[in-house]
Design a protein around this nucleic acid. Structure first.
Length: 234
DNA sequence: CGTCTTTGACCTGCGC
DNA sequence: GCGCAGGTCAAAGACG
């Protein structure tokens, strides 16, 4: 896994069956594109200091889990849930990393940000929890995992040119796992929002081709106010 | 003392 | 059905 280099994680996003390049007319609807047209604005409204001028330096990649979710994506973006997903993504992006112990805050040199959005299933995000954030009253976690299908929440990924992996975004995150990923010498870190009621998760990994690029993927939506869990206001 | 990171094991999904 | 890879859990240790 770790000795297989040559494939950029970003490529996996687009080549993998569960990750499709969005933004194209044959992959998503106009409504989705509409959203993508505005995504940078959305991010800009948060803490991320997006620099559109640099956005073209790196291929944008979006995450769409399944073909059958596209209709949902399209419809939702023009509806209400889409806004939730979008806002969640933006919220996550504008709040994401920044673990209390992360030094990223000041040294991160964010020169490039390519936001992307994805939606996995059309189910209620509030029901999609496999982590400690959601604990069924009587079903053991393991039993639940066996009997309940894992459902992905809307995801939002973007690449950042930074020397540090953990970019300060205002929210507090707790690392719950790290795995070596195939085709990449760099491990992937898994973070979860420290807010016990929040289901947002984040994955952080470096591009194998360009170690200076950090790929951050947010999944889910903050169930609390974007500012309620921030590390130091603003 | 509380919070967070680390790390190995386990589980699930997916392709062959 | 099997094997691989990704994702999550949970115990233990470290740190402030």
């Amino acid at each position: 896994m770790e000795d297989k280099e040559g494939v950029d994680p970003a490529s996996e996003f687009t080549s993998d069956s569960s990750w499709a390049l969005a933004g194209g007319p044959d992959s998503v609807s106009d409504s989705v594109n509409y959203f993508f047209d505005r995504e940078s604005n959305i991010l800009s409204e948060f803490d991320w200091n997006l620099q559109p001028d640099h956005a073209e330096q790196i291929d944008r990649f979006d995450e769409l889990d399944r073909a059958d979710t596209k209709p949902y994506l399209a419809g939702s973006f023009s509806g209400s849930h889409s806004c939730v997903a979008a806002a969640a993504a933006a919220c996550g992006s504008g709040s994401g990393s920044g673990t209390a112990s992360s030094p990223a805050g000041g040294s991160a040199d964010v020169s490039t940000l390519i936001p992307s959005v994805s939606s996995s299933s059309g189910e209620d995000p509030s029901e999609k929890h496999t982590g400690s954030g959601w604990k069924p009253p009587e079903i053991p976690s393991k039993a639940r995992k066996k009997g309940q299908k894992r459902i992905r929440q809307p995801r939002f990924a973007f690449m950042t040119k930074s020397e540090v992996e953990h970019l300060e975004d205002g929210y507090r995150w707790r690392k719950y796992g790290q795995k070596a990923v195939k085709n990449s010498p760099f491990p992937r870190s898994y973070y979860r929002c420290t807010n016990s009621k929040c289901t947002v998760k984040k994955r952080v990994e470096r591009s194998s081709e360009d170690p200076t690029i950090v790929i951050t993927t947010y999944e889910g939506q903050h169930c609390h106010h974007c500012c309620s869990n921030r590390v130091g206001s603003v």
